[in-house]
Design a protein around this nucleic acid. Structure first.
Length: 364
RNA sequence: GCCAAGGUGGCUGAGUGGACAAAAGCAUCAGACUGUAAAUCUGACGGCCGGAAGGCCUACCUAGGUUCGAAUCCUGGCCUUGGCA
């Protein structure tokens, strides 16, 4: 029986699955929200840690949340800052540390930020997004079993504190049950499937609206860890939203949707766009796209000598601003002269690629 | 015509007797990028052989010369730019 899940965003119901690009600092890099709308992107992910540092509570409160601040009509999810535990603290021990109380980000010798689960939830509630994510302790992909177990235990404790804080804020703000944002628990445990299962069970006891596939989904060989994705689906309650945090490549999203995942975010389409890698369907029209074929897309790198004079469009199976209006030659030129417009057009294109992908996945 | 400066790898441009197949930047080519410390990073970039260490060949306008050894010093030629006539 097909699931009839949707993503509730204020008064809207967005059909699943969805892909939300990352607007980490309150902007999808290189484009504004009008551009974003034009890509038919239904929502975005903003980041609690970065916005806490760089924007601050006061401004967020004044605007009543990030959505109004950005003047964005679509859905929003706020990430907890859990990823920064890995990307900043664990990648460079001088930049901070993880303790039971929370994460210490050492900004400089004089200044440090202590990020607790409570603080993360609190700030997220002020960001006023459609989904709050509990702060988690990222399992390092190279962790031993014991290290992974520690991160799972801490993730569970933090999840409980996050949930408690969430309920507390909801009570204080008198947010009606049906108007509450979703709260997502994050499942850690690395490659150890029994730890994943254990983590899920403990998080279910606490109670969430959905689970995030946390950690690094890529193994040492560079292959996607579908085994963990399957474990997530297998042990999660059926009514839970399943969110592939930071996932992923188009083919990975296709497979995860088939397994049962509903929500995705990833920097790949936007970062790749800025790094001159465009996603192009191997098809002559949007209708002809076959996402079940093994090579349904390829990469187009615009900044190549062979394209300097190419008057064709980047993709026939795309209706984005770039593909409708401009040639390969023009885009190559914009990249060569380092004009910002190149990044904008490429980002718009890649986001439309992803939104088409999700449209195709919804249809099946 | 005279005076001055100069001609270096696709381009800009260091190097002024051996550590030079020649810095650096650009361009080009290849690779990476997965809850964004990323409009970023890595590698190749005269030819041939080798997996590599390394080896061989051809190279700093051109023709000679000095020297054990020259992109670097000397002489002639060609060319470029600036100043003066």
């Amino acid at each position: 029986m097909a699931k009839t899940k949707f993503f509730k965003s204020k008064d809207k119901k967005i059909p699943l699955p969805v892909f939300f690009p990352d607007a980490t600092r309150g902007v999808v890099k290189a484009i504004d929200t009008s551009d974003l709308e034009s890509t038919k992107t239904p929502g975005i992910l903003v980041n609690t840690y970065h916005l806490y540092r760089e924007l601050g509570d006061e401004v967020v409160k004044k605007f009543g949340g990030i959505q109004r601040f950005m003047n964005w009509d679509g859905a929003t999810i706020s990430d907890s800052g859990g990823f920064q535990v890995m990307s900043i603290v664990k990648a460079n021990p001088n930049s901070g540390s993880v303790i039971d109380k929370g994460v210490i980000f050492r900004e400089s010798k004089k200044r440090k930020i202590i990020f607790t689960p409570e603080k993360s939830v609190n700030f997220q509630m002020n960001l006023n997004c459609d989904m709050v994510i509990a702060l988690d302790d990222f399992t390092d992909p190279n962790s031993s079993y014991d290290e992974a177990k520690d991160s799972v235990e801490r993730t569970i404790k933090w999840a409980k504190r996050s949930k408690d804080e969430f309920l507390k804020v909801c009570r204080e703000k008198k947010i009606d049950k049906k108007d509450r944002p979703y709260i997502l628990g994050v499942v850690q445990g690395g490659k150890y499937q029994d730890l994943r299962k254990y983590c899920i069970e403990k998080l279910v006891e606490i109670g969430f609206d959905g689970f995030g596939y946390g950690g690094w989904p890529i193994n040492k060989q560079g292959n996607f860890d579908y085994e963990t994705a399957e474990t997530m689906v297998k042990y999660s309650p059926k009514n839970y939203l399943l969110y592939g945090l930071g996932i992923g490549k188009p083919e990975e999203i296709v497979k995860c949707v088939k397994l049962g995942f509903d929500i995705f975010d990833c920097v790949l389409p936007t970062r790749d766009a800025r790094h001159k890698r465009l996603y192009v369907y191997n098809a002559d029209s949007i209708n002809d796209i076959d996402i079940n074929s093994p090579d349904f897309y390829s990469f187009y790198v615009p900044d190549k000598e062979k394209y300097y004079k190419d008057d064709s469009s980047v993709s026939k199976a795309c209706d984005c601003l770039l593909c409708r209006k401009y040639s390969k030659a023009y885009l190559a030129h914009l990249f060569r002269i380092k004009d910002f417009t190149a990044l904008r057009l490429a980002t718009i294109h890649n986001l439309r690629f992803y939104s088409i992908l999700m449209e195709k996945l919804r249809r099946k």
